[in-house]
Design a protein around this nucleic acid. Sequence first.
DNA 1: CTGTTAGCGCATTCAA
DNA 2: TTGAATGCGCTAACAG
Lengths: 337, 337
Amino acid sequence: MQDVAKLANVSIATVSFTVNNTKPVSPATRARVEAAMQELGFRRNAVGRALASKRTHILALLYPALQHRFRGTVVDFFTSAASTANEHGYNLVLWPAANDAELDELTSTGLVDGVLLMEVQVEDPRVEQLQASKTPFALIGRTADPSALDYVDIDFENTIAAAIDHLAGLGHTSIGLLDGGLGRGQLRGYGPVVRARAAFAETMAARGLTAYSTSCDESPGAGREAATRLLDDAPGMTGLLIMNEHAAPGLVSGLRHRGISVPDDLSVLLIASSREMAAMNDPELTVMSAPSIELGRRGVELLIDHLNGRSDHDRHALVMCAFEQGNSTAPPRHPAA
Amino acid sequence: MQDVAKLANVSIATVSFTVNNTKPVSPATRARVEAAMQELGFRRNAVGRALASKRTHILALLYPALQHRFRGTVVDFFTSAASTANEHGYNLVLWPAANDAELDELTSTGLVDGVLLMEVQVEDPRVEQLQASKTPFALIGRTADPSALDYVDIDFENTIAAAIDHLAGLGHTSIGLLDGGLGRGQLRGYGPVVRARAAFAETMAARGLTAYSTSCDESPGAGREAATRLLDDAPGMTGLLIMNEHAAPGLVSGLRHRGISVPDDLSVLLIASSREMAAMNDPELTVMSAPSIELGRRGVELLIDHLNGRSDHDRHALVMCAFEQGNSTAPPRHPAA
DNA sequence: CTGTTAGCGCATTCAA
DNA sequence: TTGAATGCGCTAACAG
């Protein structure tokens, strides 16, 4: 910066002013400074700026380490959040936190301006820690009562309702929900499952439909077992929502091995997954695809707005999954009278 | 830090020494300093340290934006690299670079100490840019001639050979390879495909086996089409290597729809994927699973060693995929005489 | 073994 | 509209 200033015959302060548009600079000197910067290939040093301005322009994507491995659909979060951050002049650092110490380091070393919290549980201790630390943060997901927090999340309520309506519209009256379970240990109370179950029960009751609900681990093997269990426990069921993209292929092939045809004998609708994952099944599943990319983007933007003191935006965003027709949903073989 | 120094009755420098173990400190004063740090909950500011030491302890994971979306197996890279970095006191920032400007910013703003380069092509312009910029970097993957570079990669040569030997050992003599294609545009010359093809051709020739090679896009739909094509073009083939985890489910179900049974009529071996992806198929595929986690870890460690001037380690690491038996490989129905 | 001191590269206040 | 000077929090000589 010294060099630029010298070459442009201005002070180092003026260079700073023109770079940051922080004070009026006459067109003439601005031109000289910019020319000098060009010539020297100048890029202002990020660390110096961070120290002086107390803003690193680094955001952390905080996710729980040691827990379930990330599903196919989740990568999109990572990359979309990173890209959005870049577009706004920020950087995104991956922050795997397995324990309090790592969370402590996150908030107290001054490395990051803000935090994006993923895989939020209904009761999430990390939220309180972040609040106590005064670190600005936004959630991708929601706690039980998130009204005072900034968050973006899938609109499970409306997504589930739309899913049910799709099947009900085809004539199904007995519909099941297979989810990935509430988890154990630290992952207990995983928000999406909690909300999906509640929405399912409520909507089914409101529509006067027969509901069946169960869960299995997030693996094809568990899905295969679930197929058997479902056929035994809910014989009259003709429609099934699956919110467990990893179990889906096992479920579908398990059904096939039991002589059950999808969609002729059972309509299957995958929830909160992606078209790609749906296409890995045979038949290709109809899917409500998760807005991963949009959530990543909006989460970052929400956080950045917060950092800039712009809280005029809505602090809460719920985004529905998008319906994508596949070959796994059809009217039931014996429509209800 | 001032506060800590005051509380411990030492100079600020002494605090720095004990924190960094950079100079001998007497046990007594060390104890006092540590006590003071405890009491004040002191964590040294990352930005101050970075500015003074010219080391940010931030690494960038550089990946091509705008290109193919990341496959299931790739997330493990991200998280494993991030975790490893953390263990060594580093942070990992996601760096999606779609153009030269973003690469320029990476190398010239002083934000990162080193770069991990993913999705390397055989001829990769980014490598030259990084070299020109004097930024330390390591590759996950390899260019055509990587001898002068630090890299970790899958050992495609031995993996392919092991895969062929598995099938040959079962009695197969006519074996195909289905890969994801060399790609177009910027992704042209994607290393894994180039190397796998070469290794396949070479090993098949060395074993005196009949080889057939083709490719299709990375999608289940393309896999379904490929099934038909394969049956028409290579009717005598009894074994197939698939290095295209996204097409595999379509391939397998396509075969089923054509009345071809796996493994009875055709043995299928998935390459450089994961057990999880293999399990999404029916039958569950035998797989050579990619060492994604290890590659992420070793890539980071290689880079950090480099940063610390420890180049005594091997600068090159090739890791084989691990064989995991599934239900998709068996002796051919009509073993060769 | 410990203290003093000079920057690291930049943003920003205060004068001019 | 511009310049001079101060300091962000810490590391690393250099002295002692």
